[in-house]
Design a protein around this nucleic acid. Structure first.
Lengths: 250, 250
DNA sequence: GGGGAGAGATGCCGC
DNA sequence: GCGGCATTTCTCCCC
């Protein structure tokens, strides 16, 4: 693609607040919270309507370079190449992308007001345990979830059969050191604030690392193997059979 | 863009292992580690040569949906629409994207073997303190960095003026609870393994949260305000003056 | 391949 | 705005 043609297309897209995506052979310098340099290669570059900039290499999930929303983007000639100079004054960040060759470029106005509906989060786990307390243990009585307590972001709070207070911390994947220490912080906080002798702590997760389990037990806490729930019931009911069939197929 | 035309272009791109980027009006269902649904809207969709799939809405840095590398992608008719069915058998994940309209599409073979050169990381901080021990305090003598010690991932280890062992934990941004507890874990570990009465702990970061500072002091540890270094010396020397001028300008 | 920890993390929700 | 924390975190490094 001709650079002069790209320059025009870029300007129109920016003026129209359209999303622009282009592939180019380029070098990239960044300076801001850190500093980086990326030598010459082919990348996909995207500028969104909110002026977020993303640079993607041919592999990997994450952008190799990026600028946050609200960044200013200026494209100009630098000899026979084009220079994309992106600046975010508020964040004191800037990027310089030298475009040696533009492979393709496209832009379009995007309309999208939808938000993702997601299940299987840590909060969903806490709600499941709130509604199915026997998953913690027989006789467990849930009191409240999350910010419903004044003692911090405790996932789930309740009493056991002998009326001892129980703090439950949920992790949707692997429970590690950090989860154990979170639990310890919460249990200690609530023990002090309520003037109790003892508070039980339970870590609920599908899995726990061996070291974290040791630390958990050293603190007198317990582990419960619990899977996060994954059911988009509202959105599934009209296509359940097909979806479940495909699930089984995998 | 005609859907039949897109179908052909998609197949060629997949066969050639090219990157493909297209904008489309679509709905998206995902099932795997979690489950999600995204109602109809315009998005940018990218499939990389390594078969990573990214879905971007018009704003924000992160993809709203994605599939990891090594995913299989099948495009086929579903009535008058196209269905992109992406599966990762190993991860037991799948995604179904119904394309109601394709706004644009482009693909290209990308050549890129370069890796990002980055400075200003936590490791760079530790190295700076190793070479400039007076930034910790007068009389501080560094012993080793990171994995050079047998006692874990301790950022920096040394002796103070009175030959007391000092454990230093670096954070490149805000030091929080987790940083304090990391420091405590390391200090305790090394104290026990060396059979010492006391070990000093220092948290080095540009900033620390009030609660973390309180916990730090309760543990008898100290805070040092330190900025991470940001100098790509190798890559800067031939353009220093221009770059620094622009930096000042911001 | 799993564990442990950083990241230019980002995003969300609370105060 | 900052603080605290989850994330389909991702990524790297080391065992």
């Amino acid at each position: 693609m001709e650079k002069s043609e790209f320059l025009k297309a870029f300007q129109s897209a920016m003026d129209a607040n359209a999303l622009i995506a282009f592939a180019a052979n380029c070098t990239i310098s960044y300076s801001g919270r850190a500093e980086s340099f990326l030598a010459q290669g082919d990348r996909l570059i995207v500028i969104k309507p909110d002026k977020t900039l993303l640079v993607h290499q041919p592999s990997g999930s994450n952008p190799i370079n990026y600028m946050k929303e609200g960044t200013q983007h200026l494209l100009s000639w630098e000899g026979s190449n084009l220079l994309l100079h992106s600046r975010n004054r508020g964040l004191k960040e800037q990027m310089r992308i030298v475009l040696l060759r533009v492979h393709f470029a496209d832009s379009h106005l995007l309309e999208d007001r939808e938000k993702l509906v997601l299940t299987g989060t840590e909060k969903d786990m806490a709600e499941m345990l709130y509604r199915n307390p026997e998953l913690i243990e027989k006789g467990f009585v849930p009191l409240g979830m999350e910010e419903q307590t004044r003692y911090g972001f405790i996932d789930l709070l309740g009493y056991d059969q002998s009326h001892t207070l129980v703090v439950v911390e949920c992790k949707r994947y692997l429970a590690d050191f950090s989860a154990v220490e979170q639990l310890r912080r919460y249990a200690e906080k609530i023990r002090q604030s309520k003037g109790l002798d003892a508070v039980r702590g339970i870590l609920a997760a599908p899995r726990i690392s061996p070291n974290a389990l040791r630390m958990l037990q050293e603190n007198g806490f317990e582990f419960r193997k619990v899977e996060p729930p994954k059911y988009l019931e509202t959105y599934r009911k009209d296509q359940t059979s097909v979806w479940e069939f495909e699930q089984r197929e995998i």
